[in-house]
């Protein structure tokens, strides 16, 4: 049976009941519609109720849900004609980042996304969606390629963070991220970033210095994981609820703070409950953002992008 989150248990129980009834109906050729209908009604109400009122830490768990749609899922549902391009031309290809040309409706775009694995084997290959420097260098290489062909860049952000390992440090993880930030600041093409799951700190921002930053309703974006924050501040990783609250990492929080530009609604029960619906909403939001950005002259685009990030941060001045 699929993974379930603690607070999703009542939903899963109901789903099981419904499935059981339907199976009975099929086997014994009974009409159970009168029993099933109210249960389905109850399911959707319960789903709405539970999801309307998630705590920040619960939202973190939804953002990390193992059945949540990943970049490659959206590349199948939202985009078409995807041709994956690999490698940083310096060291190797990093499977934690997938990238290439694709179509969004009529328009050609370059899509770059962090990719987690669905099972242990794929996760080992994709390093749980934690890129090495070569992943970021591949991303920048293809951003430049997009700009050369005057195609917009669309990034799909979903990573626990840039990988903190020996090889990553040897090959300049910090330098790779820093270079991407500088490159994105100067990227002469419309650029929309979407946080679709986990926006893990610098490793996420390395694909996120965009004209428009969208965020799925149950995604998170933070400078540090709640677990990491709790371990540092209170020397106790079990204080993650408290940290998740304090960090203000939900889409609503970040929209209020002006860090993201738009929240993309997810279906009731989260994107994993109805991936197609989640994809439809994402596709629409991307199309709207790109339609707005495409007519803007390139120098005005770059100036507005810089201006947007320059406004971020509050302080007092005596």
């Amino acid at each position: 049976m699929a993974f379930e989150l603690e607070f999703e248990k009542p939903l899963v129980d109901l789903q099981r009941q419904i499935a059981h009834l339907k199976r009975l109906a099929e086997e014994q050729r009974l009409d159970v519609q009168s029993e099933v209908a109210p249960l389905e009604q109850k399911l959707s109400e319960l789903r709405r109720e539970i999801y309307a009122d998630l705590t920040p830490m619960q939202r973190v768990l939804v953002a990390r849900h193992p059945r949540r749609p990943y970049a490659l899922d959206y590349l199948r549902t939202v985009f078409s004609d995807f041709v994956e391009l690999k490698g940083d031309r310096l060291f190797r290809d990093d499977p934690a980042i997938v990238a290439g040309w694709a179509r969004l409706g009529e328009r050609s775009v370059v899509v770059i996304g962090q990719q987690k694995g669905r099972d242990m084997k794929e996760n080992l290959r994709r390093n749980f969606g934690m890129p090495h420097p070569e992943g970021y260098r591949k991303a920048l290489r293809l951003m430049h390629q997009a700009a050369r062909f005057q195609a917009p860049v669309v990034t799909l952000i979903d990573t626990p963070g840039a990988f903190p390992g020996l090889g990553a440090e040897e090959r300049g993880q910090a330098e790779a991220i820093a270079r991407n930030l500088e490159g994105m600041a100067r990227l002469e093409t419309p650029f929309v970033a979407t946080i679709i799951g986990e926006g893990g700190s610098g490793g996420a921002l390395a694909l996120g210095l965009a004209d428009r930053v969208l965020m799925l309703e149950n995604a998170i974006y933070s400078v540090i994981s709640p677990e990491g924050c709790a371990a540092i501040l209170w020397k106790d990783a079990t204080q993650k609820e408290r940290a998740a609250q304090a960090l203000r990492l939900t889409a609503t929080d970040l929209h209020e703070l002006g860090i993201i530009d738009e929240i993309v609604r997810e279906p009731d029960g989260g994107a994993h409950a109805d991936p197609d619906e989640a994809g439809r909403a994402l596709g629409e939001a991307l199309d709207r953002a790109l339609t707005e950005l495409e007519p803007v002259p390139r120098d005005a685009l770059l100036a507005a992008r810089a201006e947007k990030f320059l406004r971020m941060g509050r302080f007092v001045e005596a």
Binding site: A185, G208, L249, F309, L310
Partner: peptide
């Protein structure tokens, strides 16, 4: 950390 994602955005702000 105490400024959350707002501190993360300073990476972007300084870079631009």
């Amino acid at each position: 950390m105490q400024e959350g994602a707002m501190s993360l955005m300073q990476l972007a702000k300084t870079s631009v």
